[in-house]
């Protein structure tokens, strides 16, 4: 197996405050990798750094066999795509325009149309609402657009920041079903979640982040055995 993403000694932060301390890990091709841990310990910062929104202070990031480009647009083109926390949709655009923006890095219109059709198949709700403005959607629908937008980029690795944030349990279930389906089709996904509740059922690899470092890493089998460790960090889950 070849590593899709290799991060070595990544350190970064905001202004003078260091948030990540020499984080190293790899993400393998295929399946869902989950980074879990309490809020405010650097999970989102890690994704922002990987996406290129936040420059690294030091360390190396290799993606798909090459050193990554500087800046978010270059990484999106390389297939390292972030679905940001809170969706960050283009509020004044329609659902379809939002999705088309996701395909911005691609050129071939027929292929883009094909992906759009796939997404409408995955999230039929979006097909119904394709001409509606993003600002008028419900929380769950927005999340679907956010994920769909990421898919439109034909990401090699799709990074999703808290897919369950702010959603009702029923909707969370729908979202995760979709993610599981995508993973089954071979899509590599890196998910950040505060608690492992739902993601634990679908992810294959786990990293526990604490204080800007990985405190624990392991497979889903390891996770079951190390439940006590998680309790220490996550307070009773």
């Amino acid at each position: 197996m070849t590593a899709l993403l290799t991060v070595k000694d990544l350190t970064t932060g905001y202004r003078h405050i260091r948030v990540l301390h020499e984080v190293s890990f790899t993400v393998e091709q295929g399946g869902i990798t989950a980074i879990i841990g309490p809020n405010g310990h650097g999970k989102s910062t890690l994704l922002r750094a990987l996406s290129g929104l936040l420059p690294a202070w030091s360390g190396e990031i290799a993606f798909d066999g090459a050193v990554v480009a500087q800046g978010a647009p270059g990484r999106a083109r390389a297939g390292l795509v972030l679905v940001p926390q809170g969706d960050q949709l283009f509020a004044g655009m329609t659902v379809e325009e939002n999705l088309m923006m996701g395909g911005y890095v691609r050129q071939d219109m027929t292929e883009i149309r094909a992906t759009l059709a796939e997404i409408f198949e995955l999230f039929p709700r979006l097909k119904e609402r394709r001409a509606q403005r993003a600002s008028s959607l419900s929380g769950g629908e927005r999340r679907m657009v956010g994920i769909g937008r990421g898919l439109m980029a034909k990401a090699k690795l799709m990074m999703i920041d808290e897919p369950s944030l702010g959603l009702a349990p029923l909707i969370i279930e729908q979202i995760y079903q979709a993610l599981a389906e995508l993973a089954a089709r071979g899509q590599s996904i890196l998910v950040v979640e505060e608690n492992p509740g739902r993601v634990a059922k679908v992810a294959t690899a786990f990293h526990l982040m604490d204080g800007g470092r990985f405190a624990w890493s392991g497979s889903s089998a390891d996770l079951k055995q190390s439940g006590h460790i998680l309790k220490t960090y996550l307070g009773g889950h």
Binding site: A72, A76, P84, F90, M101
Partner: peptide, 15 residues
Amino acid sequence: RATAMNREAALLMGV
């Protein structure tokens, strides 16, 4: 338009 509405999201789309 994407950049106008949400610059960071546009960057993430490769703009």
